[in-house]
Design a protein around this nucleic acid. Structure first.
Lengths: 346, 346
DNA sequence: TTGCTCCTCACGTCACGTGAGGTGGC
DNA sequence: TTGCTCCTCACGTCACGTGAGGTGGC
């Protein structure tokens, strides 16, 4: 029944060294023959190795595979699935980055080939590309949404402190649905889907919805509330879907978590996944010109809540959307909170 | 004028360690102050570092950057451009691989999510993916086309030894053009473009053509003969263009260089870059059923020329094309040489 | 004398590949 | 005794990041 290491490696089309490496890292611990010290692989070991190799094939690092194996050992199928989806988000991010690198290289080649450009021009192109990558890398979950997740739905309707921006929460979300005006057969995406309150409204109208969020706990709650929605890890800066996938993209109370440099990148990402006649609708705290409205005080107010929150300036936002080929309309919901609807021009 | 290393790093938005690393690898050699031993960077050094960083940004390895810098120092612009295009081919290959890995992961998630599949199924999917990758990796230029390049156009018409397969060379190429029947405004791709004899015929009819070849010397000659053609490094297994790019794809006397496993992958790649109503036309040595024709003897004949050459079996080829959604027609040109025309069904 | 900038080793990263040198059973 | 399979170190890969420990000029 049991086999030596070379036979095991042959069956799995890998090498003995690789198998020993996984043992070294604590992913497997095969029995060893007491007299010879040879490793003896059981069916159970073979199964574990198959799983490890399958996950390695899709680029999962060994340290994370260890976590996945722990979840499997404890029989937690949902957690294991989450790890697969997380890996998908990672791969998609890399894939998009490679695409950008290729387009940078294409521009280098064009300039170099066509107008006898010097190498200085290439440097300039590379610098642009690096700047954008740095913006992306700065993205972190510094707001601890995993902690907020279980109390979110209650707090959002309480209206205390920072939560004041969610005044008229349910009516505002209804307004987003009204503005987007989805037709049956369309598919929408919500970025920063949270506990699914906005996306859920579209689902009720029979619209297919996908949602992304960087918080694992938010996603858990969202899936429990709306099992028919595709809710997966992801963020504004690397949307894990191909070009031209969605009829509309919505987001509520999330855009202000991005820095200004990140906002520009996010709009390009949204534009990428939107179909030619697509619509974007953003509901969030924003700034009219540079003035803050008195009872929200964001930006100039040193309250703890405003740390790492950057309301978009409306004129900048509409200008960016125009530049990307959209026609934008803005509407003030209440103090400090705006709704922006933009339609892609054909 | 000259600056210390930290100032240099700040200007280029990199780190002192990185600059020292490039010096260690021999890419730069800044002057050092005789008394303090500090590095002093001149404008010339800054320019070199900019170039290095630009090439690193597009993923070029340091050892290859050294070669590029040598070409630049010798003023060879054409060679430097070649390296950029080679890097493009590398990146495109990685990009396509990532896409495949993502689709493997998608299938894993689907199965896992939907029908309570076990991890054994995931292993199966991973194995398929690994097998295909191994086929791709096996591709090497073992025929030394760089050496053949300068004498190719002469030899191909000589008809000696292996070159016999090129009997009626010019008339056969004309036939390919006739069969493809290109309309003005279309864009075509030739895989294994060589010295450009086939693609050149399309160019003469005012058709835009792109060509790929893995031989640097072949590409040089091809560009000299047809400067208006886009001739870049690449091969059957990773065509460096996006999906749905070409109206037709042609290839002559090249398909037999692929193993059977590679041929299947190549057909999928061709299908990927072809537009919905696209055409494929292959002119090459092939086998009718399993029988070899007497005066070519490929396969059963132990002549040196047959090593690493694998004529496609016509029934297999047409079946594969049918499977991919094509309608295929075959025509015997002369002993052992066939022409296959396949049209994508809408 | 303190603080600053520079210097040169040298180890760590990640997932193994590739020997070197040695042992146990046929 | 020879050949085979297994074993355990341990160094190499690639492009740097990150200290440790030390020096020279203000």
């Amino acid at each position: 029944m049991d086999v030596w290491i070379h036979e095991m490696a042959r069956r799995l089309k890998t090498t003995p060294r690789t198998i020993r490496f996984y043992e070294e890292k604590g992913l497997i611990s095969p029995d060893k023959s007491p007299e010879s010290g040879y490793r003896q692989f059981s069916e159970q070991d073979a199964w574990r190795l198959q799983t490890i190799l399958a996950l390695r094939e899709v680029g999962m690092p060994v340290s994370r595979i260890r976590e996945v194996l722990n979840e499997i050992d404890q029989g937690d199928r949902e957690e294991a699935l989450y790890y697969l989806q997380l890996q998908r988000a990672v791969l998609y991010g890399e894939w998009l980055r490679l695409k950008r690198v290729i387009s940078t290289l294409d521009r280098m080649i064009d300039r170099f080939d066509a107008d006898q450009a010097g190498w200085d021009d290439l440097w300039e192109l590379a610098e642009q590309s690096r700047r954008a990558d740095r913006e992306r890398e700065k993205w972190r979950d510094i707001w601890d949404f995993d902690r907020i997740a279980p109390i979110f739905d209650e707090r959002v309707r309480s209206g205390e402190g920072w939560w004041r921006i969610h005044r008229d929460y349910d009516r505002s979300l209804d307004l987003v649905v009204e503005q987007v005006n989805p037709r049956s057969g369309e598919t929408g995406l919500e970025i920063g889907v949270g506990t699914g309150n906005l996306a859920g409204r579209f689902l009720q109208k029979g619209i297919r919805m996908c949602g992304i969020d960087q918080s694992r706990e938010m996603l858990k709650i969202c899936r429990r509330k709306y099992p028919e929605m595709t809710a997966v890890p992801g963020n504004f800066l690397a949307i894990p879907w191909p070009d031209d996938t969605f009829d509309f993209v919505v987001s509520s109370y999330a855009f202000h978590l991005l820095s200004d440099g990140q906002k520009a990148i996010a709009l390009e990402e949204i534009d990428r996944v939107l179909k030619p006649d697509g619509r974007v609708c953003l509901l969030d705290v924003m700034m009219d010109e540079t003035r803050m409205e008195d009872d929200v005080h964001f930006g100039t107010d040193p309250r703890e809540e405003m740390k790492n929150r950057f309301p978009a300036r409306i004129p900048w936002l509409t200008e960016e959307l125009e530049r990307l080929g959209y026609t934008a309309e803005t509407e003030r919901i209440h103090e400090g909170v705006w709704l922006v609807l933009a339609v892609k021009r054909a």
